[in-house]
Design a protein around this nucleic acid. Structure first.
Lengths: 242, 242
DNA sequence: CGAGTGGTTGATATCTTTCAACCCACGTGG
DNA sequence: CCACGTGGGTTGAAAGATATCAACCACTCG
């Protein structure tokens, strides 16, 4: 059986932080996944839902979010190969919303199937657990980001994080990556106002650190951006050894 | 064998959100755990450490934190029965610091032992995985807290969260609970300044919602505090059904 | 061509921080 | 038993960062 693009994305992403052997790989390739295309800005799973499937991102950007004081806070941005609602395997009620940022190709995997997989292949169970732990590590860093960094540093940190994660699955090209996000959405990631995001981006552009426009992000000075955002990649755990 | 206070705390906490049967319970009671007392403000595990044991909180308060722009951000507060560095089972390098807030009785469990337990008792593996997922859910709520809520709402939310979590393990008594935390530490939880925390607390005291003093927190009007902090308990997943 | 979405701008308001001082309770040592 | 040192809490004035409001601009799509 030829590997589906679904399994391929999942395997590629899992392999970044986990050791996946041939048998694991085969088990993943045989996983029944039903695909579906979603338009931008669509809700995939609502808060309080009790999903029976997990959602695998194959293409596009997916976000998790919840609201407070009428404003939305984006909790995480998910990219190809990730399973943003993997937690629903053990946390039955959704405590936040899952939606598409851009048009997305998604694959849905039944919870039962995943549970069986975890029993049959403990190594994959550990890998999936680990993925949720990396998720949590990123949440921690986002707490620091909105809690303790200035608006410019926040933006710099977010951009470098996205670059690092996308780079490890081969979705960057010389300092640039596709990032079709509006300033309103950036504001929702960073706990800022859209107007202020605009000004922050102008400053970063002026300082020749970053150019974000037309669904594309160009990093001009990665080193200085990292410094500005105090970016320290340990928390991404981008290697099976870490 | 009489159950140690270590196992007892762990079982009590796990039972809040998980279904633990008699065999599970026995397996937990037989777990080799070495106890140790820690003074307040001591580091248990440093950032970049590679721990070989997990740390079980039996008594006292433990925090996870990391720093940015010279300021500390507290990421979570852990209470009796929790294992704050359970993630180190699969994430080998610490991306943050673990330390005591108060004097603490801690129990240390070797990673190997926990891994064996997960293999031998899949139900406990699921329970532990679930605990790390609840952790992540709390991180998400904290992102919302620092990202989108006003200083007063932040404080209200934090206090109600602590009340709920402590209440479920029987550590509250009529609207009050032990909470030996300084204003500086609260500031580090909420992404605020100690001075501002002081003013927020004064306002909450004036409005007769809350009185926090002498290591004790008195909740005067739980309903209005919840409203003020927009507290919605789903994210705590405080029942095996959720 | 017109509507709509996303981006930009300037003026002003608000919230939170900063800084510097002061107070109070507690514990310790002379 | 008092004097002092210390940690935590409190206060006021001023500065700074970010939010708010209300326009306006520039594409793109139909």
């Amino acid at each position: 059986m030829a590997p589906t693009p679904f399994a391929a994305a999942l395997i590629k992403k899992l392999s970044v932080s986990n050791t996946i052997d041939a048998d694991d790989r085969q088990a993943l390739e045989e996983l029944p996944i039903t695909g579906r295309f979603y338009d931008p800005q669509q809700t995939i799973v609502h808060e309080y839902d009790r999903p029976s499937h997990c959602c695998l991102v194959v293409d596009g950007f997916v976000i998790r979010s919840k609201s407070a004081e009428g404003q939305r806070q984006i909790l995480s941005i998910h990219i190809s190969g990730e399973i943003p609602d993997l937690q629903s395997l053990h946390l039955h009620v959704m405590d936040h919303e899952l939606s598409t940022l851009t048009g997305c190709t998604l694959g849905f995997i039944a919870h039962d199937v995943l549970r069986q997989l975890c029993v049959a292949r403990p190594n994959l169970a550990a890998a999936l657990w680990r993925e949720t732990l990396v998720d949590a590590a990123i949440f921690r860093e986002w707490i620091v980001n909105v809690g303790r960094r200035s608006s410019v540093a926040r933006m710099a940190h977010l951009i470098v994080e996205m670059w690092e994660r996308l780079d490890h699955i081969g979705r960057t090209r010389d300092g640039a990556f596709e990032f079709p996000v509006t300033q309103v959405e950036l504001a929702d990631c960073l706990g800022l106002t859209p107007v202020h995001v605009n000004r922050v981006l102008q400053q970063l552009r002026q300082d020749k650190l970053l150019h974000l426009a037309r669904k594309e992000c160009n990093i001009l000075e990665k080193g200085r951006l990292e410094e500005l955002g105090q970016f320290e990649p340990t928390y991404l755990h981008l290697s099976p050894q870490l």
